[in-house]
Computed example of a mutant assay.
Amino acid sequence: MAERPVKIAAGNVDVFYGDKHAINQLSISIPDRAVSAFIGPSGCGKSTFLRSLNRMNDTIPSCRVTGSIVIDGENIYDSKLDVVQLRARVGMVFQKPNPFPKAIYENVAYGPRIHGMARSKAELDVIVENSLRKAGLWEEVKDRLTHSGTSLSGGQQQRLCIARAIAVNPEVILMDEPCSALDPIATARIEELIDELRQNYCIVIVTHSMQQAARVSQLTAFFHLGTLVEYGDTDEMFTAPQEKRTQDYITGRFG
């Protein structure tokens, strides 16, 4: 773990929804260019914490976050921080594919266009093609870029959403159970893609599947009842966990 520089450092993070204490004093250092998987039973706080990494929780009026979350030395909860810029740097891929009801091309071009990343149509074309290539979708859609993104299969739609996220040059990609709505073949394709993308991005994935965590991640964090129980090397976590609660969850004694 030591050889990878830290990308995200969270210190004593608490998250509240009204009176509900969803995350309790969570501290974690997440390295760059690696996949960190968050596992744990439903309602344990893994998605809540994931959403706090790009301030998606801001959209929930009752939500309050305390503590510090620092990305590359910058506290993302600083009141002066531009949240729109933050969400370009920290992309998000959701559980259910959610392409815009627009052309495939426009789905990918939307972010670069609003962020002023292309000076011409030709530059935008290059960004769109490169993003679709990185998402492993270019060969399948290059002849139908004007077709609606919603006309694609579920697995293709999810890859389109990944292309849309990487089109704005993010540094971090958050994935909230990105394969839970997909069939096994589409899931395998997304997992291969995650493995390719980790060469260039810090990736954090929430998954309900321990098998998926074991396949795609280098590091795994186990959450239980709003606390981070254990975080470390994935292979070690699954073969020799430090904590009894982790052991019980992995061996199916609870969950």
Rank of each mutant, 00 (worst) to 15 (best):
M1I: 13
E3L: 11
A10G: 09
A10I: 02
V15H: 06
D19A: 08
K20E: 08
N24F: 06
Q25T: 11
L26Q: 06
D32I: 01
S36R: 01
A37R: 11
A37M: 12
P41N: 14
G45Y: 03
T48V: 14
L50P: 00
N54H: 00
N54M: 01
M56F: 09
T59Q: 06
S62M: 04
R64C: 13
S68E: 15
G73T: 08
D78A: 11
L81T: 08
L86Q: 01
R87D: 05
K96Y: 11
P99C: 13
P101M: 13
G111W: 12
G111M: 13
P112K: 03
G116E: 15
G116V: 13
G116F: 14
M117T: 08
A118L: 12
R119F: 05
E129S: 10
W138A: 07
V141N: 15
T146D: 15
T146H: 14
H147D: 11
T150W: 13
S151P: 02
S151V: 09
L152K: 06
G154N: 12
Q156F: 11
Q157F: 12
R159H: 05
C161Y: 05
C161W: 07
A163G: 00
A165I: 04
I166V: 14
I173V: 14
C179T: 15
C179R: 07
D183W: 00
T187E: 01
L193V: 06
I194F: 11
Y201A: 08
C202E: 05
A213Q: 00
Q218C: 10
A221H: 07
H224R: 13
L228W: 02
L228D: 03
E230H: 00
Y231G: 03
G232W: 04
R245Q: 13
Q247M: 10
Q247V: 02
Y249N: 01
R253S: 00
